[in-house]
Amino acid sequence: MNRFSIADCSSVDAALSQLKDGAVVKAGGVDLLDRMKDGIEQPTRLVNIRNISGLRGIRETEQGLTIGPLTTLAEISDHPLIQSQYQILADASGHAATPHIRNMATVGGNLLQRVQCWYYRSSDFQCIRKGKDLCFAFDGLNQYHAIMEYATCPSVAPSSAAVALLGLNASVELSSAKRGKRNLGIRDLYVVPDANPTKFTVIEPDELLTAIVIPKPAPGTRSAYQKYGEKESFDWAIADAGVVLEMDGDVCRRAVITMGAASPVVRRSPQAEAALTGKSINEETARAAGKVAVEGAQPLSGNAYKLDLFPVAVYRTILLAAGQRDRDPSAAG
């Protein structure tokens, strides 16, 4: 790791005052240290927000939940309210990374982590997401890469929390010393590489992620998240799915189906959602929804198998959310 100085901040205002001259925010530090150790990023000044107590914690409000971005994944997955009413988020937080990383990594950091593409993560490859003009995955090894929406860069969305929070229609609060606060939906937080490959999120250098807001689910909502890897013990997703079902008795009034490892930015599947809306949930309807979730997908040279995996991930997670199936013992995390 390169040498750096660090500004250790005890308040949001203090941190905002330090966001200048290329300083980089460090919270849990897991992904940042990873990138620095790999030599793909060499900031000379870090702004340490890890000890800002006001940015940590889970608060129930009239409208739903407000989660401080420094809340760790372990704290979220262990939280009784989240376990009972926001199962998708408990699942996603509880199956990200490894148990020890979940003790260190913050939900904010999970949302803002960079893609795991091995070309991006190697200092030997100067790729399009590092400001150069090449993507190495198209002609190289791409078995873990995207099957849809990847014209510029087929790396996949790495954040499992994002898959859950998109499903829950959550938003994030961004704060800046100069411009005050703004709120964005999860999908709008991310920049699609086709639009700007070097910018991963819309967060400006002087901005800090200061809150995650989750609306209260409608009555009758059930949800779940499952991730499949090549391994069961820690692995990145080769297919994952988030499912939120608003049920009216046996009938699904509204469905949100989200996927992470299919595309560069976390996405919903309108086709799968439409396939469930107004239907009763059973294996047949769940499988039908899974099938259409990969409609239009175009695999790369090494990942056609994902066309088989995503429909399975989606249908099984629908059934899990509906309480008609147990968590898959072979799911990862």
Binding site: F136, K231, D235
Partner: peptide, 18 residues
């Protein structure tokens, strides 16, 4: 990598061990 001849998973994360 077939084009550049470098190992893409020289770690214990993408080089997967049970």
């Amino acid at each position: 990598d077939p084009v550049y001849g470098l190992m893409v998973n020289p770690d214990l994360e993408q080089y997967k061990i049970v």
